[in-house]
Each structure stands twice: as structure tokens, then as C-alpha cells.
Design a protein around this nucleic acid. Structure first.
Length: 744
DNA sequence: CAGTGAGCGAGCTTCCGCTTGACTT
């Protein structure tokens, strides 16, 4: 008998061949093989939403090959082995139909990990295709098609051609627009941070003001701060309480797609797409000699699970590498499931933990090495013991005031020896560090060295980065591991969102206009909980509790009605094409608002006869204000005034003598520091091609002085040379190497 | 380690999820 096994990915097929030998012919379908047609909606909304499927153009070849293979010999068994989730079940079903398989010609099998025992067990336990699960997928597909292909054309007629809307992308845009508006209306509140440097018997320490007359200390302004400072300068300091506590920290779960993307962004600075491309390379593996082996498990997953085979290997490795204390008796299991997770795969882990990053270093390029190391360490750490920290809290009384100091000592590092998770909040990074206090005794009297105060302001919420957006989407159950990166690409190519050089995501005007249109007229679809509600209904379909057609019908009927109504009621001018009072300065006809790639602009209403166009009034005013702000800036080369220009990397100052003088300078501060090399130029903040900030002489290219660290205005106290910020609160002289602390 | 400097409009476009090569330049 002939045996064909069909899986989704070719790399998986290769691994299976190794386990199973020549008896089985293992093939890959390359994901979905059939879909709705691209050119039309492909759903008969009058007839129970019957979908029209066709073999996708790029899959014709593979489908033909599989079909020929399945029918070549009478006696052939096709084992359908796509992933065990909604989409995988659907692929299996489509294969049956596209290949024309009879009931006794195929069997459905599934495994959640690519290990020999798991695959053999699956072959022993075939089952039927779960048609309810297939219907759940179909409902998902049909709903997405209806939403996308009905809303997008409405945007073309009401706003501009080429736009798009969808269940996932439109919410992604909304998150970014909403966040931007929160930031816009945010009003910073002043507060003051007050702390003291104290001298105890055994050493010095720093304690922060925490309570005033038993209440949480809130210092609102300079007046209050000055009063407190005055009091603290004369107060007596007594150690009232000493609290030592042991605290336990557990390691993070092994990687899934979303957490890998976040951590690679935080620790390696990779974009979401970059991470996926490199992970794919590691998954496909590298060949050294004859051996071609995948280095990590599948990278598009939402499961924290690790195979038993793998878990058996790890303790041996840990004992060998770190010692007996660093292995667990029983594996640690991570069960917290992400919203809507399907868990068809394992977590992202090294296929063989014994291949250490160092072993592979010479076979990998630097980016692959860094990502492999991250995955290896994270996975290993997840199976190491908890860390034990000794946390000491010292409470110091100073009359009406109470100050606290916290120290933290790592008693047993446990997993921290291999890996500590990064953070999106800079302040939290400190909690991973040791902070030692001198041996302080209860009742001890301390001497004041100094009181420090610092004015601070509350910060607006941070803009999303690619990685924090993925985190948010995942927590709302929106999108899947395979779509996080493509979704971000889509909203950027549509011109809805822009990623600036600070790696943050900003909404563009078109993004705001489309978002506001959708929020106003289709609020239920861009509601954050729309997907979660959909998932609940899909679960009902998958469990056989409901049929899929009524679920779609219940959504579609009111949706279609709204679409038809908005086609009539919303005039194009409601969104755009407003008439204005301005007259065209070429032909005198009125100007009107139009929408271009980069947002609104004014166009002559007689277009295309008169092609005159100019920026919106607000934009012209903004531009004028900006020019005024920099009107005194002179070009240091030719003495012409500088003007503000817009370029690929944002606004910058350019010499008005262009193109005779091509001098440019960033808008931000030309520092008031003379260049230490040529003594003539000033140091200026500049950016490399990749957007990294550095400081160079503004008479470049005549003088090529440049440095990474931020230069200080105060010269070196010893040799008068240039000082740069080498570490936090530390200046280093470039000339004599003398280090000085920064005095605030 | 060193960029950038207008002009947009119409177009036949578009969804979400599953997966990689096969096209040209």
C-alpha cells in the first residue's frame, strides 16, 4: 500500500521523513490551497452564504501534484495531517475536495509536537474530519470577506480610492488613533521627588520621602518642596523599622509568537517582521555537512507547551551547565492560555537544547545567533528554579516625615542565571538589579548628608511600538500569530500609520479620517470586543451547538442595511471635498478640500483644467510659525538664513542658499559647545542612516569630529578638554580620561 | 558615524489566515 502524508509546511515534511523512513511519502500543502476568489465577493448572500471556492493561483501546481500522486495507484492512503486547529481542519477538508478523495482513501491525523513518539501515536489514532470545526473556519472566513469587501468599496466612494477596512486592521488603526488623542489631551501634572543621602554607622544610603504625617507623600509644587527641604535639613533621622523579607520570582513562560516579537524588539531592537524572517530561517535550519536540521520549533504558535522529550533533556543539561541546584525535579508547566488561543503547536524552543548558542555561533549570522540565543536562554530558564531575593525595607523617621529605602540582594539566582525578561517600562528595569544597603540597625540614628529635590511631571501614555501593539492585539484576542506582522505592514502601506525613527507608531491624517468614519458609522465593527464576541460564536459552531449560516445571517442583515443606508445618507462632502472661501490664486475659482496620499490639501475646483493646489490653511500657518521660530538661524558656512524643510526623516534646517550651499542641520539644538578638534565649529546632534543619534562638528565635512556620547557644556576640570556622558550620572573627559560625577 | 530639499487629485483598488518559493531587476 502507498502512503502519502500531507502537512502544511515543507520543513515539517522534511522532519517527518526523517522519523518515518521511505514507507511514507510526506508532502506539504503550503498552507491553504483553496480560497474565495480575489476579484469578487464570492459569497451568495441570497442563498445561505454559500461560498465559492477556487484553488488559489499560487497553489495550482502543488494541488495538481498532490492529486496525481493520490490517484496514481489504486491502493493509496492519504493521511491528512495539517495543524489541529480551525484553519488546519479546514485545509484537510479542502484537500479532500480539491483532490477528489473518496471516503476510504483518506484519514485525518494530528499531532501537537513534531517528535517521533507523537507522530507514531497519531498514525495509530486516525479520526474523521471534524466538520463543525470546518464550519467555524468557514464562518470566520465568510465574515471577514463580507466585512472587508463591503466596507472597503464604501471607503473608495466616500473618501478615496485604494483604501481598505477589515475586522483586524481597522481595530489596529483605532488603537493607535485613540492613543494619539489621549496623548494630545493629556495635561502633565507637576510633582516633586524628594530624597536624602544619609550616613549610618556602617555606611551611607539613600532614602526617599514616602509619608507626611502618616499619609502618602504628595509634593505638588516648588513651594511645598522648599518647605519640606527646610524642615528635613534640620530634622533628626531615626531608623524606626527594618523589614527583611524573602521574595520569590518565577521565570517567564517559554516563547510564543507574540512574546518572541516583543522580547526581540526590547532586547535586540528587531522589527516584528525581522524577527519572523530570522525565526523562519532558524526553523528551516542550517546545513552543516550532511546534517540539515531545524534549530527551533515552529515560530507561529500560541501555545506554551513543551514536549516531554524535550523536558527530559533539559535537567541533564542544566545540571551539567549550572550544577544540580539549577534543575527541577518536575517540569514547570505554563498553562495560562491567551485569549482565543488554538494551541496546535509547541512553544518556540530549540529543537535540541544541547546545541548551545556558542556551539552554533560559527554557523549562524549575527542576527540568527542573537535570536537563537534569546530563544535558547528563555526556554532553558523556564525550566529552572525560582529566584530567591532578600528584600530589605528601611523606614526612617524624621519628625513628621517618613522616608524609605529599599535594598535587594539575590540570595539564589535560579533562572536569573540564564535569562531575565525585558520590560516595556524603563523604571521596572531597576527591579531586576541588585541594590545593596549597608548593615543598618533598628533604632540607629543617622546623620544627614544632603537633601535632594527634583521637579517631575506625570507622563502621557506611551505611543505603541510594533511590539507593544502586538501585545495589545493579542490580549484582546485580535489577529493570529501568522498575521501580527502582516497586519502592521498593511496599515503602514495603506498610509494609515507611520513608523517614525523613534520606532513608535503614529497615525496619519488618512488613518484618522478613515477611523473616524468607521467609528461614527460602523461602531460595532471597530469595537475592541467585536472579535472576542465573534470567537465565542465560532466556538459554539465548532462545538456543534449552532449552525454557521444563522450566525452569519444575524450579523449580515443589519450590516448590509447599514451599508446601503450609508451609501445614500453619507455624502462624499461629509467626509471630504468641502468647499472653502478661499479663491484660487491662478484662475479665481473657489478652492476645495481634497484628500491626497499625505492627507488633506486645497485644490482648485476647476481641476483638471486648472491644476493649482496648495496646503491647507492650518498647515500653512503651522509652517509659517515654524519658520518664524527659526528665523534667526544663520548658515555657518555662507551666512545666509536657514529655513525649515521637510524631508524623508522629518523636519530639518537647510540653508536658503540651496543649491549653491547644501548645508543642513537638524532642527534640534546645535549645542553651545565648541568642537574640540577644529575649535571653530559647534557640536550638533545628528543622526546616522539608521536613525541612531550621535554628535558631530557642524563644519563637517571640513572637520570630521564625531562622538556617540552626549557632550557636556562644562569642560573637564583638570585639562579643560571635552567631557561626554559615559554612563548614567558620569562624565568622562575625551582628552585625559578623567571621570567626574554629574552634579544636579 | 554625516540623509533629507514637492506636490498630492484619477487609477478598478479591498478582507483574514495558512504557508513559501518563483517570478523578474
Amino acid at each position: 500500500m502507498n502512503h502519502i502524508i500531507i502537512v502544511e509546511s515543507p520543513a515539517k515534511a522534511r522532519t517527518l521523513k526523517k522519523f518515518l523512513g521511505a514507507k511514507y511519502n510526506v508532502k506539504a500543502s503550503m498552507g491553504h490551497i483553496r480560497d474565495l476568489p480575489k476579484k469578487e465577493i464570492g459569497i451568495d448572500t441570497e442563498n445561505d452564504f454559500k461560498p465559492k471556492y477556487e484553488v488559489s493561483p499560487d497553489k495550482k501546481k502543488i494541488v495538481k501534484e498532490l492529486k496525481d500522486l493520490a490517484h496514481k495507484y489504486e491502493d493509496t492512503m492519504v493521511w491528512l495531517a495539517p495543524d489541529e486547529d480551525r484553519e488546519g481542519e479546514s485545509i484537510a477538508w479542502h484537500l479532500v475536495h480539491a483532490l477528489g478523495l473518496k471516503k476510504d482513501q483518506y484519514k485525518r491525523i494530528a499531532f501537537h509536537e513534531i517528535t517521533k513518539p507523537a507522530v507514531l501515536a497519531a498514525l495509530e489514532n486516525p479520526r474523521n474530519i471534524d466538520i463543525d470545526l470546518v464550519h467555524a473556519q468557514q464562518a470566520r472566513r465568510v465574515l471577514d470577506r463580507l466585512v472587508g469587501y463591503k466596507l472597503s468599496p464604501l471607503l473608495w466612494t466616500k473618501i478615496r480610492a485604494g483604501l481598505s477596512a477589515g475586522r483586524v486592521q481597522s481595530v489596529a488603526v483605532r488603537l493607535i488613533v485613540d492613543r494619539e488623542r489621549e496623548i494630545e489631551k493629556f495635561e502633565p501634572v507637576e510633582y516633586w521627588k524628594i530624597d536624602t543621602d544619609l550616613k549610618a554607622k556602617k555606611g551611607d544610603f539613600n532614602a526617599e520621602l514616602s509619608k507626611i504625617k502618616g499619609k502618602k507623600a504628595e509634593v505638588k509644587n516648588k513651594k511645598e518642596a522648599t518647605a519640606i527641604l527646610k524642615y528635613l535639613n534640620k530634622a533628626d533621622y531615626n531608623v524606626a523599622k527594618l523589614n527583611k523579607k524573602e521574595s520569590i520570582r518565577q521565570p517567564a513562560a517559554p516563547f510564543i509568537t507574540s512574546t518572541l516579537q516583543q522580547e526581540a524588539s526590547r532586547k535586540l531592537g528587531f522589527s516584528v517582521k525581522q524577527t519572523m524572517v530570522i525565526a523562519q530561517q532558524l526553523y528551516e535550519g542550517i546545513s552543516h555537512g550532511k546534517d540539515h536540521a531545524g534549530l527551533i520549533t515552529y515560530m507561529r504558535t500560541d501555545s506554551f507547551n513543551l514536549s516531554n522529550e524535550f523536558l527530559k533533556e533539559v535537567p541533564k543539561l542544566l545540571k551539567k551547565t549550572y550544577g544540580d541546584d539549577y534543575a527541577l525535579d518536575k517540569p514547570r508547566v505554563f498553562t495560562k492560555k491567551a485569549k482565543g488561543a488554538q494551541e496546535a503547536h509547541e512553544a518556540i524552543r530549540p529543537t535540541d537544547p544541547n546545541k548551545t548558542p556558542e556551539d552554533l555561533k560559527s554557523h549562524l549570522d549575527p542576527a540568527q545567533y542573537k535570536l537563537y540565543k534569546l530563544i535558547w536562554e528563555r526556554t532553558i530558564a523556564s525550566q529552572m528554579p525560582a529566584a530567591v531575593l532578600d528584600v530589605t525595607t528601611v523606614t526612617v523617621e524624621a519628625g513628621d516625615y517618613e522616608l524609605t529605602a529599599k535594598g535587594q540582594i539575590i540570595k539564589f539566582p535560579g533562572f536569573m542565571k540564564a535569562y531575565v525578561e525585558g520590560t516595556d517600562h524603563p523604571d521596572e528595569a531597576l527591579s531586576n538589579k541588585e541594590k545593596t544597603l549597608p548593615a543598618i540597625e533598628e533604632g540607629e540614628v543617622c546623620k544627614l548628608i544632603e537633601v535632594n529635590s527634583e521637579q517631575k511631571f506625570t507622563q502621557p501614555p506611551a505611543r505603541y511600538t510594533e511590539a507593544t501593539l502586538v501585545k495589545k492585539l493579542e490580549s484582546e484576542g485580535i489577529g493570529r500569530p501568522s498575521t501580527y506582522a502582516p497586519t502592521i505592514s498593511t496599515v503602514i502601506t495603506r498610509g494609515y500609520i507611520e513608523k517614525k525613527s523613534d520606532k513608535k507608531l503614529y497615525p496619519l491624517e488618512i488613518g484618522m479620517i478613515v477611523n473616524d468614519f468607521l467609528v461614527e458609522h460602523f461602531s460595532d465593527i471597530v469595537d475592541y470586543s467585536f472579535t472576542a464576541d465573534m470567537e465565542e460564536k465560532l466556538d459554539d459552531i465548532a462545538e456543534g451547538k449552532t449552525k454557521w449560516e444563522p450566525v452569519i445571517s444575524k450579523f449580515y442583515k443589519p450590516f448590509e442595511k447599514t451599508i446601503e443606508e450609508k451609501k445614500k445618507s453619507v455624502k462624499k462632502g461629509d467626509v471630504i471635498h468641502e468647499k472653502t472661501d478661499e479663491k484660487c490664486d491662478v484662475c479665481g475659482k473657489p478652492m476645495m478640500v481634497k484628500l491626497g496620499r499625505n492627507g488633506k490639501f486645497l485644490s482648485c475646483s476647476d481641476y483638471p483644467t486648472c491644476k493649482n493646489a496648495k496646503p491647507m490653511k492650518e498647515d500653512r500657518e503651522k509652517e509659517a510659525a515654524l519658520q518664524k521660530q527659526f528665523k534667526d538661524e544663520k548658515c555657518e558656512r555662507c551666512k545666509s538664513p536657514m529655513v525649515v524643510k521637510k524631508g524623508r526623516f522629518g523636519e530639518f534646517l537647510a540653508c536658503s542658499g540651496y543649491p549653491n550651499c547644501k548645508n543642513t542641520r537638524p532642527l534640534a539644538h546645535a549645542l553651545d559647545i565648541d568642537c574640540p578638534k577644529c575649535k571653530k565649529g559647534k557640536l550638533t546632534e545628528k543622526r546616522t542612516k539608521r536613525g541612531k543619534v550621535f554628535y558631530g562638528c557642524n563644519s563637517y565635512p571640513d572637520c570630521d569630529f564625531a562622538t556617540w556620547s552626549k557632550p557636556s557644556e562644562t569642560p573637564c576640570p583638570v585639562c579643560k578638554g571635552l567631557q561626554v556622558e559615559s554612563k548614567k550620572d558620569l562624565l568622562k573627559c575625551e582628552q585625559c580620561g578623567k571621570e567626574t560625577e554629574i552634579q544636579s
